[in-house]
Structures are given as C-alpha cells and as structure tokens.
C-alpha cells in the first residue's frame, strides 16, 4: 500500500501529518507524537475553570476535555463553509492523550464544517501509530474524532 492510499480522503492538513508519521520508524513516531503533546495549545481563558463548557471524552485512558466552536454557521446556505475551532485540555501526565489531541488540533482546527464532517472515522488508524503505541490505545483518538464530528454537526445545524 502506498502512502497515498493510506491517507486517501483526508483533508490536506491531516494528510500532511499522516505523511510525516509514515516517513518515520516506530520509535521516531513516538518522538513526533511527543512534539504534538508538547505543542498542544493551552485552553483559552474563556474556558478555564469552566468545566461545564467542555465535553469529557471518557474513552481516553486519561481525562481529556474538549470544546468545539463553529464560526459563522448562522447562514443556512453557507453553514458547510463555516469554520471549526477546537480546544482541548489534558494533563501533562497524559502525554499520549495530549499527543492525539495535538494531531487533531493541528489537522482539524480552522477547517470548514464540510471538511471536518467528511473526515473518515478510521482516520486515527492512518498515522502508523498502531505499531508505536498499540491499536488498543488508539481508541481514545477515535472517540475524540467521533465526538468532535458530533458537536460540529449539532453546532452547524441551522
């Protein structure tokens, strides 16, 4: 299978990340995942201390909270073009979970509603991470993506 087939159907931003991972050995994939964990942006102030505004992702091995905003969804005709914004919170003791969140932030934040909803549900399995962290642990990222898409669907409905 070529890298192109592995990443078919991914938006360009996510595809680029998948290609980066695909080019690395299993050990170096962990290092790249750690970079994503290190670079996960802090929650903006308006969400800090407001757990009720965040959705908890129970499927992750460690607690992860996320918030989804859709900018400019008021216009029904253009709601598919509205912009998706993502916010995550996970503790430093949970670097794997933070790394998954970091990939989704980098790959999805700023995409349109239509682009996010078109992402295949099995996208988390296309980063070659199964080998590096075990497929079992990838279920957390699958759950994050599912919940993000669900929120995007709700928040873009006019």
């Amino acid at each position: 299978m070529t890298a192109g087939q592995v990443t078919a159907g991914l938006p360009e931003s996510l595809d680029e990340i998948a290609q980066d991972f695909a080019a690395l050995s299993a050990r170096d994939r962990l290092t790249l995942l750690l970079d994503f964990s290190d670079e996960l942006p802090e929650l903006p102030e308006r969400y800090q201390g407001h757990a009720e505004l965040l959705e908890r992702v129970d499927e992750c091995q460690s607690p992860l909270f996320l918030a989804v905003e859709v900018e400019g969804a008021q216009d029904a005709a253009r709601s598919q073009q509205a912009t998706v914004r993502l916010f995550f919170q996970a503790p430093p003791e949970a670097p794997t979970t933070r790394g998954f969140a970091g990939i989704l932030h980098e790959g999805l934040d700023g995409l349109t509603v239509g682009e996010v909803l078109a992402i295949p549900d099995d996208a988390p399995y296309r980063f070659g991470l199964g080998e590096a962290v075990s497929p079992l642990r990838l279920r957390g990222m699958v759950a994050m993506l599912t919940r993000i898409k669900r929120q995007v669907r709700i928040k873009s409905a006019v």
Binding site: Q61, P95, R137
Partner: peptide, 9 residues
C-alpha cells in the same frame, strides 16, 4: 507506565 509516552516526557 500506563501511558506509553510518559517516559519520553
């Protein structure tokens, strides 16, 4: 560890 990446941090 439980977290596969914690050692790397």
């Amino acid at each position: 560890d439980e977290d596969v990446l914690l050692y790397e941090t």
